[in-house]
Structure formats: structure tokens, C-alpha cells
Design a protein around this nucleic acid. Structure first.
Lengths: 111, 111
DNA sequence: TGTGTTACCCACCAATAGGTAAGTAAGCAT
DNA sequence: ATGCTTACTTACCTATTGGTGGGTAACACA
């Protein structure tokens, strides 16, 4: 990234902004779990719900909405009854998969 | 990491636990900023405070306490007046530096 | 006597995150 | 008519997070 070892105070400020934004994007009790679930499969709403036991419907819906807003997840509704809605990770969403993998590695020490 | 591609449901549960724990450890509005600050220097309380502009004293004290509890930071008080207290990253704390670096990389796309 | 220094603590408040339980639409099968 | 299915919505509540503005100890120095 930055080839220089010394950072100007401007760069430090930007670095802090980026880190804070990234933390904001990553955090939430269930968000990483949902993304981890979507890692390899396109899933319907109900499948995600069953795959994340313990999450409330309200929070799941809210999280999915935010993930779509952030451009990390794509939502596709088929106009069927009963409804069928699929969620899939976007390329942008996939950029944080390495973060999840790293979290799995370092997280062990804190359990 | 796990050489197998298929995970048993037991492993999936453990994976979720680890990810949730890691997220818990990482999150908080200021935590990563504080750790990033301590990356290369041992700092006094006041230096951290000045290095994290915007944080309230209450939150800073609380964060530092939790970081010590988690074993990520060591606190050393010198019995002086006016008081002098130093904080330094432990090896355990250093394990999340790669996470911060990765967050810096992926975070750009979300600003 | 009074002021400055440093690293805190405390009471109180507001905003956000998350949970619970119920309800809804629209069609199909019974 | 009734119930089942699926993907939600809504009202209400609690808990956690973070912020504000004050106070404190203990000594040194003017």
C-alpha cells in the first residue's frame, strides 16, 4: 500500500478513517456469520435463517438490507407465491472473506 | 487452515463461535485505533488520549481496562506523583495487527 | 494558600443494537 | 372455508455503547 514507512499526519487521519469504516462495516453480532454462510452458496431467506440459529427475523431482515445497501450482497426476488427470494455475495462482499479467515485464525486465542 | 473442504456441523458451530468471539474482541468504535496507536510505541495514558482525538475519557479508560483483561495490553503504573502509567501491546495483542492491516486494505472500498 | 499536573472515577443521559411476539399478503391444497 | 407456505413488517421492550461534565488524590512549586 503506502511504500513509505513514515506517515504524515494527514495519512494517519486517513488511516484512522479507513480502519473505523472497516470496523463499522464488519461489526454486528451476526454479520460475519451471514457472510460466511453465503460464501459458497446462493441462499434463500429461509435458508439463511436456518443457517444462523439464534438470530431474530427482525435483525436478519435488517442485516440483509444493510448488506445490500453496502453492496456486499445482491437480492433477487422471483415474483412467486409463496415468495422466493435469493441472496448472493457480490465481489465487493467477497473482499471481506479474507478478513473472516483471519478472524478464524486469531479468534481461537480468545475463546 | 482446515485441510478438508467439507465441514461437519460440529466444526461449523465451532467456526461460528470463533468468528463471533473474534468480532466481539475487535469491535468498538475506538478499539482498533488504540491498538494501532500502540503498534510501535509504549505510551502513557495521556499520550493515548491525545493520539485518539475525539474519544471520551470514560470510554478510553474502559477500553484500556478491557484490553488489559483480554490480555492484549499490559499496564504499568509507576508510583509517582503526578501519576505515570504506561500501556504496551502484548504478544496476544499483536496477533490482531494483521487484522488491522487487512482492514486497512479492504476498508478503502467502503469509504 | 493556591495552582498545576496526571490518571483516573462518578452520576447522568442519549442513541443504537438487538430481542419478542404478533400480524400480513397471496396463492395452493384440503 | 381453512390452513399451509414464505418472506417479510410492526409495535414494544431491554441492554449495551458511547458521551458530558463534573470531581479526586497527591505532591511540587510559586
Amino acid at each position: 500500500m503506502t511504500p513509505e514507512t513514515k506517515q504524515t499526519s494527514e495519512e494517519i487521519i486517513t488511516t484512522e478513517l479507513i480502519i473505523k469504516k472497516a470496523v463499522e462495516v464488519i461489526c454486528g453480532k451476526w454479520r460475519m456469520i451471514i457472510i460466511h454462510l453465503l460464501r459458497e452458496k446462493v441462499l434463500r431467506y429461509g435458508e439463511i435463517k436456518r443457517g444462523v440459529p439464534g438470530i431474530s427475523e427482525k435483525v436478519l431482515v435488517h442485516e440483509l438490507k444493510q448488506l445490500v445497501e453496502l453492496g456486499m450482497v445482491e437480492k433477487e426476488s422471483f415474483g412467486e407465491v409463496p415468495p422466493r427470494v435469493e441472496y448472493r455475495l457480490t465481489d465487493k462482499g467477497r473482499t471481506i472473506l479474507p478478513v473472516i479467515d483471519l478472524l478464524r485464525e486469531v479468534g481461537r486465542a480468545f475463546i
